[in-house]
Structure formats: structure tokens, C-alpha cells
């Protein structure tokens, strides 16, 4: 444990970086997924194409995605951020689309019948009703991101993965375990917090 006590600030910085990476990627993914989801949810053709493409993107393993993006984006935080965001986007997109699809026809019809404008219907009726699905998607996206962000250390994204990877390189067991434990704890804490939100 001596290494840990001496390097608390490094560990803290890695943790902070990890959270930042996940948060920023989530935000970026959400900014794309929400409008795109609203746009395609009621257009069957687009919907199939966009969801199919994003499902494909999501099933590409993290390391493969990074390997393919490095030649295009280079190394570093920004590249990692973009890669991670493109990883979380499909999850959020699917959640938005299924959430919007789940809104009962009768409810949408009633909203139209009472004279809600399309925008009012979206914000006051459809999105609130899609919220449970969006939260479920958020939970999956966060778990995916915490995990993928660990690997992002490999392309210079920083975060807790740095401890694991350098630890593996140096055969430094304590460093590996600290990194692995913290990243697991982060994943579980985020999951518990989001589950609470889902129930509320």
C-alpha cells in the first residue's frame, strides 16, 4: 500500500480524468442522440437505417474502434472523447427512439386533439413519457463508457486505465489493483446512482 499513499494525488487526478472523460462523452453523445432520435422515431425508413447503423457501431469492440480511429483522429484526450461519444451515441439513440415509440397512440392523439403544437406535444407529453426508456439507456451508456474509457488510456485518453496499463507494463501489482478497483467502484457507483434515478 505504500505506493498508494505516496501517489494519492496521481490516483485522484486519474479518477477525475476518468469521470470527466465519461461525462463529456455522455454529453456529446446525448447532444447528437436526442435530436436525431426525435427526428427518426416517426420516420420508419430513416429509423431502420439509423438504428441499424448505430447497432453496428455499438457492437464494434472498444479496442477495434480505437484502432480504426487512431489513424484518423490521432492520440490524446480529444480523440478518446470522440471515440467514446460515438460509442455511447447508439445506446442513447436507441433509448430515445424506443421511448418515443412506446408512447401510446391514444395519448398522442389526445394531445393533438387538444391543440398541442408538435413542439408542445414533444416536450410536454412524448419526452416525459420516453424518460424511463432514456434513463435505462443512460444506465447502459454509462456502464459502457466507464468500461471503454479504461481502454481509452491506451490512445492517450488518460483516466484510470493509465494506472492499469502502466501497472501491467511495469509489473506493478498494487498499481494495477488500485486502478482496477477504482474503475469497478466507479462503474458500480454510477450504476447504483442511475438505478435510484430510474426508480424515482
Amino acid at each position: 500500500m505504500r505506493w498508494t499513499w505516496r501517489n494519492l494525488d496521481t490516483i485522484g487526478a486519474a479518477l477525475g480524468e476518468h469521470v470527466l472523460l465519461v461525462g463529456a462523452a455522455l454529453l456529446l453523445a446525448g447532444v447528437v442522440a436526442l435530436p436525431l432520435g426525435v427526428l427518426v422515431a416517426r420516420r420508419p425508413l430513416w429509423r431502420a437505417a439509423v438504428l441499424g447503423a448505430s447497432a453496428g457501431l455499438y457492437s464494434i469492440p472498444t479496442l477495434a474502434l480505437f484502432a480504426l480511429l487512431v489513424p484518423l483522429l490521432g492520440l490524446g484526450f480529444r480523440a478518446a472523447l470522440l471515440a467514446l461519444a460515438s460509442y455511447a451515441m447508439p445506446v442513447l439513440l436507441r433509448a430515445v427512439v424506443t421511448g418515443l415509440e412506446g408512447v401510446a397512440l391514444a395519448v398522442r392523439e389526445a394531445a393533438d386533439g387538444m391543440g398541442l403544437t408538435p413542439r408542445q406535444k414533444l416536450w410536454q407529453v412524448e419526452l416525459p413519457l420516453a424518460l424511463p426508456s432514456v434513463l435505462a439507456g443512460l444506465r447502459v451508456a454509462v456502464a459502457t463508457l466507464v468500461s471503454a474509457a479504461t481502454v481509452a488510456a491506451y490512445i492517450g485518453g488518460g483516466g484510470l486505465g493509465v494506472l492499469i496499463l502502466t501497472g501491467l507494463d511495469q509489473g506493478h501489482t498494487e498499481k494495477i489493483l488500485v486502478g482496477a478497483t477504482l474503475v469497478c467502484a466507479l462503474a458500480l457507483a454510477a450504476d447504483v446512482a442511475l438505478r435510484r434515478m430510474q426508480r424515482a
Binding site: A106, V107, A110, A111
Partner: peptide, 12 residues
């Protein structure tokens, strides 16, 4: 005023 066959109350 419009009352639809299935009710259509906003569940939220």
C-alpha cells in the same frame, strides 16, 4: 373538446 375512444389520458 375531444374525447377519444380509448381515453388517452396523459399517464405522467
Amino acid at each position: 373538446g375531444y374525447v377519444i375512444q380509448e381515453g388517452g389520458l396523459f399517464p405522467h
